[in-house]
Design a protein around this nucleic acid. Structure first.
Length: 277
DNA sequence: CACCAGGTCTCTC
DNA sequence: GAGAGACATGGT
C-alpha cells in the first residue's frame, strides 16, 4: 500500500485500505482508545495516535519504522481481499470491513491478553489488561507499558484475582512464571503446527487462544480462531457442523494460507451486525 | 437481576 | 479422545 512519511508522521491516502475503526474493533487489540475522532493505540511500551486529515489518515509517532511494520503497511489488502473471496459471503465481508488490517502485535502481550479473553466480555478484557499494565508495567509518563515477562512474573494469583482476572488468575501466574524463565521468543521461528503445540502447552491456552496468538502476535495467517462469533457465522453461511475442531479444519481447507484474514472479515461483520455494546 | 462472555481445564467413559 | 461441568467476574 502507498504511504508517505512526513514530519507529521505516516500519511495514508488510501482510506479504502486503512480504517482505524475497522482495525481497532475487529477484536485483535485490547489497548486502544478513541476520543473525539483521535485514536490512541498502545503496544508494548509504545504509543501512537491516529488522526484524520482532509482526505487521509495520519499516524503520529516518533518511531516510524516500528509502526509501519505494526500496521502491516507494506501489504496490499486488495490482494488479500481478492484471495479470500472464494465464496459469496466474502464479497460482503471484505466490503463491510474494507479498512481492516491485521496488526503485528507483540508475542508476549498477545499470549497474556488472549488468556484473559477466554470466556470473557471484550470491555472487561480491556479493563483487566489496563489494571495489569497500571500495576506491573513501566510508567511511561502519561501511560503505562505492557509488563515484560519478568515484570508480570512478579504478580501472583492473589494479585491477578484482585485486579479482576477471576479464575484465570492461576493461569496468569503459572504462564508468566514459565515464560519469564524460558526463551519462548525462539518459538517464533517454528512452523505453525509446532508453534501451536508449544502455545497449547501453556496454562490457559487452548486451540482458539493459540490461533489468536499466532494470528495477531506471530505473523501466522494459516490459522482460523473459532470462537462463539465464528460458530454463528459458520451456521449462517456454511453447514451444520458444530464441532469447533472440524469447523476449523473445514475453514482452513476453504481459505488456505490466508485463512486468518478471512476470519477477521467474518468476525468483524458478524459482531458489528449483532453489536449490543 | 439473571444471563452471558473471542474457552480451557478437569474429570469421566 | 469425546462429552459434561465447573469456573470468577462484572457489563448489560
Amino acid at each position: 500500500m502507498q504511504y508517505q512519511v512526513t514530519e507529521r508522521g505516516i500519511v495514508i491516502h488510501d482510506v479504502e485500505q486503512f480504517d482505524p475503526v475497522h482495525i481497532l474493533s475487529c477484536g485483535q487489540i485490547f489497548r486502544y482508545a478513541e476520543d473525539d475522532g483521535v485514536f490512541t493505540v498502545y503496544t508494548r511500551d509504545k504509543r501512537c495516535r491516529i488522526v484524520r486529515d482532509a482526505c487521509a489518515w495520519i499516524i503520529l509517532t516518533n518511531d516510524v519504522p516500528y509502526f509501519v511494520e505494526y500496521f502491516d503497511l507494506a501489504r496490499d489488502y486488495n490482494d488479500v481481499k481478492r484471495d479470500v473471496s472464494v465464496i459469496p459471503v466474502m464479497q460482503d465481508a471484505t466490503r463491510f470491513g474494507s479498512g481492516i488490517r491485521i496488526l503485528k502485535q507483540d508475542f508476549f502481550e498477545m499470549i497474556i491478553s488472549f488468556i484473559i479473553s477466554a470466556n470473557n466480555h471484550i470491555p472487561r478484557i480491556k479493563s483487566i489488561i489496563e489494571r495489569i499494565c497500571a500495576s506491573l508495567g513501566t510508567n511511561m509518563g502519561d501511560y503505562y507499558a505492557f509488563p515484560t515477562p519478568a515484570q508480570l512474573a512478579r504478580g501472583n494469583a492473589e494479585f491477578f484475582r484482585s485486579i479482576g482476572a477471576g479464575y484465570r488468575a492461576e493461569y496468569l501466574e503459572n504462564t508468566a512464571k514459565r515464560l519469564a524463565s524460558e526463551n519462548f521468543t525462539s518459538w517464533l521461528t517454528l512452523p505453525t503446527s509446532e508453534l501451536s503445540k508449544r502455545l497449547v502447552s501453556l496454562m490457559g491456552v487452548g486451540q482458539k487462544v493459540a490461533d489468536c496468538i499466532m494470528l495477531f502476535g506471530a505473523g501466522r495467517t494459516d490459522v482460523f480462531p473459532v470462537d462463539t462469533w465464528i460458530k454463528k457465522v459458520y451456521a449462517d453461511y456454511f453447514d451444520t457442523e458444530t464441532n469447533p475442531t472440524l469447523i476449523r479444519a473445514n475453514l482452513l481447507k476453504i481459505f488456505g494460507d490466508n485463512a486468518g484474514f478471512a476470519q477477521q472479515y467474518l468476525f468483524f461483520m458478524k459482531r458489528e451486525l449483532e453489536k449490543k455494546f
